[in-house]
């Protein structure tokens, strides 16, 4: 039970309950403004009936390397600690997939996740994502923690959309395809 609506720039004045969480980065103004000025239809929030923000997603759409395939990308997806385990991440992502498919005619949606974050990986797998490749030292800035390599490497996970009926964006050996960060 929550209001799903577009992310507005003045939500930045009210996202503290989400962004004070240790895993959520607060970027400079330019980051949020760039997303809103370019992909406003890929940025949404979930809000409680009281107006309190519960979580948000920010995404973009573009081409992958030299390929001609458009695809959607989940850049930031975050839910305030007190609103977790309510399925909010799923409904935010579902809408993003719908828009990436219908408006941006993307072939797939992808996202990056820390290899050690099993809870999130399970959740994304439940939503139809699978590991496409492993990116070395993607989160390197945080340094190697207790979990070693898994803490700084990222999985690039993909979910095919309607333009990829033969599921080219799925491969079973994705976890073994290791690339360096571009």
């Amino acid at each position: 039970m929550s209001v799903l609506r577009p992310l507005h720039v003045d939500d930045l004045f009210r996202f503290n309950n989400i962004n004070l969480d240790v895993w959520t980065e607060t970027y400079d103004l330019g980051f949020y403004l760039q997303y809103l000025a370019t992909w406003p239809d890929l940025c949404y929030v979930q809000a409680a009936p009281s107006g309190r923000l519960m979580g948000y997603v920010m995404g973009n759409a573009g081409r992958e390397g030299t390929s001609s395939d458009w695809h959607g990308h989940v850049t930031a997806l975050t839910i305030a600690p007190e609103y977790r385990r309510l399925g909010l991440a799923r409904s935010l992502t579902t809408l993003l997939e719908l828009v990436a498919d219908a408006v941006y005619t993307g072939a797939f949606v992808d996202l990056f996740v820390r290899c050690q974050n099993q809870v999130a990986i399970d959740m994304y797998e439940g939503m139809g994502y699978s590991v496409w490749r492993r990116i070395r030292e993607y989160y390197g800035s945080l340094g190697r923690g207790r979990e070693g390599r898994d803490e700084e490497d990222a999985f690039d996970m993909r979910k095919p959309l309607s333009r990829d009926p033969s599921r080219h964006s799925v491969r079973s050996n994705g976890r073994d395809v290791i690339v360096d960060q571009a």
Binding site: D28, G30, T38
Partner: peptide, 29 residues
């Protein structure tokens, strides 16, 4: 200071990128 430098820049970008829904909100922000 960042606001003065950045926000105006993105208001201009929203015009060139035709994201009109964002412009009044950026100006108020």
């Amino acid at each position: 200071i960042s606001n003065l430098q950045d926000t105006g820049e993105y208001i201009a970008r929203a015009f060139t990128g035709e994201k009109y829904s964002q412009i009044p909100e950026f100006i108020l922000f």
